[in-house]
C-alpha cells in the first residue's frame, strides 16, 4: 500500500515527458500560453487515458495482493470476511468438502478477469 503510488507516478511522469515534446505544446508556447494552460489544458487531457487505464489495472492487482496476504495469514484477522481467508479455510479441507473452496475460488477468478476486461475496454475507449 505504501509503495502503490510509485508505479503510477512513474507512468504519468513518462507520459508528461513524452507529450510535452509534441509540437502542439510548442504551438501553445508561441502564442504565449501560460504553464497552467499548458499543464491542464494541453497535457492532462492527453495523459488522462493512460492514467485511468493504470488505475483500472491496479484494481485486480490489489484484490489479488490482499487475497494472497490473507491466504498466507498476513492480512485480515481470521473471522473477518476476506476472499483470502475463505480460500485458505476451504483449502484445508478441499478433499472432504470441496464446496467450501470452489465458490470463493470462482468468485476470485471472475473478479480479476472481469476487472481486467473492464480495464482493457477503457484502454480501447480512450485511445
Amino acid at each position: 500500500m505504501l509503495s502503490g503510488w510509485i508505479e503510477m507516478s512513474q507512468i504519468s511522469r513518462a507520459q508528461v515527458l513524452h507529450v510535452k515534446e509534441m509540437e502542439y505544446i510548442q504551438a501553445a508556447r508561441t502564442i504565449g500560453a501560460g504553464n497552467r494552460h499548458i499543464i491542464f489544458g494541453e497535457i492532462l487531457p492527453n495523459i488522462m487515458g493512460k492514467m485511468i487505464t493504470q488505475i483500472m489495472i491496479s484494481i485486480p492487482a490489489a484484490v489479488f495482493l490482499e487475497a494472497f496476504l490473507s491466504f498466507v495469514g498476513l492480512g485480515m484477522p481470521p473471522g473477518s470476511c476476506s476472499l483470502g481467508t475463505l480460500l485458505s479455510e476451504g483449502f484445508k479441507s478441499v478433499l472432504l468438502h470441496p464446496y467450501q473452496l470452489i465458490p470463493s475460488a470462482v468468485l476470485m477468478i471472475l473478479l480479476i478477469v472481469g476487472s481486467h476486461l473492464v480495464a482493457n475496454g477503457l484502454k480501447k475507449a480512450t485511445e
Binding site: 509534441m22 510548442q26 504551438a27 508561441t30
Partner: peptide, 27 residues
C-alpha cells in the same frame, strides 16, 4: 514578462513541420 511578450507577438504566428503532432489530439 509574458504579458508584454504576448502583446507583441500577436502579429507573428508559426506553422509547424509535423501536421500529425502540431494539433492537440484531444481537442
Amino acid at each position: 514578462s509574458r504579458r508584454e511578450y504576448t502583446e507583441k507577438m500577436r502579429d507573428i504566428q508559426m506553422i509547424f513541420q509535423d501536421p500529425m503532432s502540431s494539433l492537440n489530439p484531444k481537442k
